[in-house]
């Protein structure tokens, strides 16, 4: 059969990519996503447990066929050593956000209450603003933001998703497609 597969549904998929920590490798990866027209939602990179190996978490909006292409194209990059998909079911996924919210003294108590409910933290307080730190999955971060919006968000920064498989299996031990 030569017909392309009926498009399986698109969803947010998470790939963990391990790569040698060489100059230019990050731009190789981000360039690849742009060039191949892949739709990335977030990309986070930092050190891994192994020296000289960086670990990247990418969230892509893709269906099965596309995700397979993304993984194969990533493998073609010389410095990429491992690509694995992690599923929401068997992994923990977190992101961190810092939110600077308008907080004149009249509103502080109310904001504090919201922060407590979300088990977030107030990490800086100024005359009419405070900085809140929250860690959680995207939906938790999302809902805190939407609740804080009416107070007036002055500044916002989010890290994007990082992920780790639960249990003793590691991303290093799984390979995309197997």
């Amino acid at each position: 059969m030569s017909l392309p597969p009926p498009d399986s549904t698109f969803s947010r998929r998470t790939l963990v990519v391990l790569m040698e920590d060489k100059p230019g490798v990050l731009s190789h990866v981000s360039n690849l996503f742009r060039r191949r027209n892949y739709n990335i939602e977030s990309l986070t990179v930092g050190h891994s447990e192994t020296q000289d190996i960086s670990r990247m978490t990418v969230v892509v909006h893709a269906n099965d066929a596309m995700l397979e292409q993304v993984a194969k194209q990533l493998y073609k990059l010389i410095n990429v050593t491992k690509v694995s998909e992690v599923n929401t079911d068997d992994a923990v996924m977190r992101e961190l956000a810092l939110i600077k919210v308008h907080a004149p003294s009249a509103q502080r108590a109310e904001i504090k209450q919201v922060v407590d409910i979300f088990r977030a933290q107030i990490i800086d307080v100024a005359l009419d603003s405070m900085v809140i730190e929250i860690t959680g999955d995207e939906s938790k971060v999302e809902s805190l933001i939407s609740i804080l919006k009416p107070f007036g968000i002055k500044e916002l920064t989010r890290t994007g998703r990082v992920a780790m498989i639960r249990g003793s299996l590691t991303a290093n031990g799984t390979r995309f497609g197997s």
Binding site: S2, P4, P5, E68, Q69, K72, Q73, Y75
Partner: peptide
Amino acid sequence: IDPAEIAKRIRVD
């Protein structure tokens, strides 16, 4: 020889 060429444009059995 290149896995990325497989199923890139055409479905392969």
